[in-house]
Each structure stands twice: as C-alpha cells, then as structure tokens.
Amino acid sequence: MSEFMSPEQLADRTERALTAAAEAGRDLGLEVTEPTVLYDSFSVVVHLKPSPVVVRMPTVLPTFLTDLDTQSQRQRLELDVAGWLARQGLPVVTPSPLVPAEPVRRNGFSMTFWQFVEHDQSAEPDYVANAAAAAKLHHNLRDYPGQLSFMSVLDMIPSCLDELGAMPELIDAADLDRARAEWELLEPVLGSPEGFARAFPDAEVRPIHGDSPPFNMIPTADGLLYSDFEDPTLGPVEWDLTLVGPDGEAAYNEAAQALGMRTLDERLLAVLTSTRMLQVVACLAMVPQMPPMLDGLKEAMEHWRNLPLAGGLGEG
C-alpha cells in the first residue's frame, strides 16, 4: 500500500519550495519582496516579485529522476535548448538574463530561473493554430547542435510500470497486464533508433520538443511563446503531435509542407498516440506524490482502454 501525501504535506512542500526559490533568488542578487506561486502541479513555479524572474522546481517525478544530480543534468539541457532557440530568433520563454543559466540547488530542490512573461489572460487556447506553429519549432530544432538521446522521454514507462506492481490500490491487475503487454510491443520499436528504423524506415529521427508543444505555448500580448523544454529528445515529429486531433494534424501538415518538411505518418501517429496514453497510465505511479491528479488520470485511462493495443503495431 502506497502512502499518499496529505493536503497538509502538499501545502508544506509548496511552502518549502516558495521559500527555497526566494532565498536562492536573493543569494543571486535579485530583489525579492513578494514571491508568489504561479503554478503547482508537477513543478512549483514561483514569480520572484518584483524581479522579472520565474523559478521552476520539479516536485512530482518518477523515482529514477528524483536524484538531484539527475535533475540538474536534465535542467542544463532544458536551459541550453531554450537559450539556443532564442538565439536563433524563435519566440521562446528564455532563461533569465539576470542570473547564470545554471540549475541552483536549495533545501532539497533543484531549480531553474526564467524570464517572466505576462500571459494574455483574454486569449482562448487555439490548439489547431498551436499545432501549425509546432512545424516552425521543428524546422528550427532540426539544427540544434547539442547531444540528445533517442526517445528518452519514454524512460519513465518501464520504471513506473514496475512500481505500479506494488500499487494495487491505483491500478487493477487487468489494466496493469494490458500496460505491460503494450510496452512489450512498443519497446523493441521505440527503445532504440535501430529498432525504430526497422519498423518505420521512412520516418526521420530529429530533435523534437518531447512534451506536446501545441499544449505548451504561452499567449502574450506580442504573440505565442514556445515553452517547457524539459523533455527534448531525438525522435519522430509525430510524438509532438499526439492528441491534437484531425484538425490539428491537418494544420501541422499544411505548415510543414510550406517549410519543405514531410507530413505526418498516420500509422506512426497511431502507434505514438497509444504510447502517449501508456505514458499517462504510467503516471499513476506518481499519484502518491500528488493525489489530486488521480481523477484526471482515471478519466484518461477510459480513453486508453478503448485504443488498439500499441496503436495496432504488429497487426497485419
């Protein structure tokens, strides 16, 4: 039986993160008089008012990523990718120019510092337009010179499924059996570039965002900003376009063609959509760290159960 964090423990974690961000900001020479939590889910995000700086601290993570050295390594990559894109002229949320672009550790948290941007609260999300904008991001990311691993964003799946074996209160045996069977089909294809090339020889492997860029764009008075580069990886562009729907896919294809890029492979997109939903199922292992997300995950699992296993991989 897993021990779920209580509301009091969650509030205490948020308060400790807020204090750590403020203290670290002051140590770096920033004026911090009214630190304010902007967001609290998988990360705690703090605006160090009145400084135009936002701090992000991961707080809900797969077990294998809770080590601070591992977190810092991932955060350096995130800072590097966002900074590089900004230097290419792409509209992104940038690392703060007021402090070094390096992760900072404080009181058990590893944190990064970002330029504060004012969200346009009147803007309704337009995920179809965002999907089209993802093509420009992919076009620019193609030339990213840093070192990326192949589909590293999926490393959480086997680790979390192993942990879920000891969490019957979160997933029943039939669902866990399905999840394990699905990963057994997917891993030979998505576990290495060689396996992927055998299954999808016409799909290009390239630097991608890694975490659904159409759902990670921030509307501002000056336009959309790409954000949240926590999971950059090598992989097919289809991974970034899962769950955008037919209209989003069509918008991406039109924008991609205008940039001289290939359109989406429907068979690959189906396989990766199932993979994305399996990743959501794997997130159940993190529910003890954030119990309020359980209801949303249960709803997503209903959709997952109705999908073909592994997107039909291996059929026919």
Rank of each mutant, 00 (worst) to 15 (best):
M167E: 10
P168H: 12
P168T: 09
P168V: 13
P168M: 10
P168G: 12
E169N: 08
E169K: 10
L170N: 13
L170I: 12
I171Y: 10
I171M: 15
D172L: 12
A173W: 05
A173C: 14
A173Q: 15
A174K: 13
A174M: 05
A174L: 14
D175L: 12
D175P: 01
D175K: 08
D175N: 15
D175H: 13
L176G: 04
L176A: 09
D177V: 13
R178I: 04
R178C: 02
R178M: 04
A179F: 01
A179H: 02
R180L: 12
R180P: 06
R180T: 14
R180W: 09
R180Y: 02
A181L: 09
A181P: 04
A181W: 02
E182Q: 15
E182D: 15
W183G: 01
W183R: 00
E184N: 07
E184M: 08
E184I: 00
L185K: 01
L185E: 01
L185C: 06
L185V: 01
L186E: 00
L186P: 00
E187N: 10
P188V: 00
P188D: 04
P188E: 05
P188C: 07
V189I: 12
V189Y: 01
V189E: 08
V189R: 01
V189S: 11
L190D: 00
L190C: 02
G191A: 10
G191E: 00
G191R: 02
G191Y: 03
S192D: 00
S192Q: 12
P193M: 09
P193A: 07
P193W: 00
P193I: 05
E194M: 05
E194V: 12
E194L: 10
G195S: 06
G195A: 12
G195V: 01
G195F: 03
G195D: 04
F196W: 10
F196E: 06
F196K: 01
F196D: 03
F196N: 10
A197K: 14
A197W: 07
A197D: 06
A197S: 15
A197F: 07
R198W: 03
R198A: 14
R198L: 07
A199M: 06
A199L: 01
F200R: 03
F200L: 06
F200V: 07
F200I: 05
F200H: 09
F200Q: 14
P201E: 02
P201D: 03
D202Y: 06
D202H: 15
D202G: 13
A203E: 05
A203L: 06
E204C: 03
E204A: 15
E204L: 08
E204W: 01
V205T: 11
V205F: 04
V205W: 04
V205C: 12
R206M: 15
R206T: 15
R206W: 05
P207T: 14
I208M: 09
I208K: 03
H209V: 04
H209D: 09
H209C: 03
H209P: 11
G210L: 11
G210H: 11
G210Q: 05
G210W: 02
G210S: 04
G210E: 10
D211K: 08
D211V: 10
D211G: 13
S212R: 14
S212Q: 12
S212K: 08
S212Y: 03
S212M: 07
P213E: 12
P213M: 07
P213I: 04
P213L: 04
P213W: 09
P213D: 06
P214L: 11
P214W: 07
P214A: 03
P214S: 15
P214T: 08
